[in-house]
Design a protein around this nucleic acid. Sequence first.
DNA 1: ATGTGATCATTT
DNA 2: AAATGATCACAT
Length: 225
Amino acid sequence: MTKPKIPKSEAELLNRAQNLAGMTLGEIAASINVVVPKDLKREKGWIGLLLEQVLGASAGSRPEPDFPHLGIELKSLPINAQGKPLETTFICVAPLTGLVGAQWQTSHIRNKLARVLWIPVISERTIPVADRMVGSAFIWSPSAEEEQLLALDWQELTDMIVLGHVENIHGKHGQVLQLRPKGANSQAKTQAYNRHGQPFMTLPRGFYLKTNFTQALLNKHLRIN
DNA sequence: ATGTGATCATTT
DNA sequence: AAATGATCACAT
């Protein structure tokens, strides 16, 4: 693929992202000589990687923001034609150890969500990947209210993990955040602690934003624009 | 094995 | 239809 330049300011990045609105993934892929897969069954992260590439995000999967010099994280957001999120949004892996004394203020997830460039993509499964259309991108930072919701959920989930109840956590925990498996498959294991403080192996988990939360972000953005 | 990019697919 | 568990690819 060809390599777009790294955006030097937030304004430039946002401008570039917004210029993608109305383009199909096929058009974007062609512009940087990337081949479009016929479906995403084997390349689930393809859209996110394509957008990173076209916007000049630093390649690779290093544990840092997509645009380190701008402190901005890029997230693609699959929506249907009515603007409704189709999936929860993966944020980051959830630490299951070393959490005693952990604070929301210094958590990895808070840092990840500090400033996000959201790029909606009309991505219903019935639409061929190449024909899926990019929507209106926007940059977001949590409002005080949003951060409060996130912090509450994070605290609840983290408390359960610290107390050794990670395997009792289900999707109903948390209003806007949820903890779900995030691994290669159901055989993947990572260390955690049980309720007696003894280490044991369990599925790696990740934090995901529920669709009601991302839906609200979209609605606010649309109201303003 | 972990982290980044997520969506798939089955269950409820 | 929504929710939850399972899974795929690639880099480190």
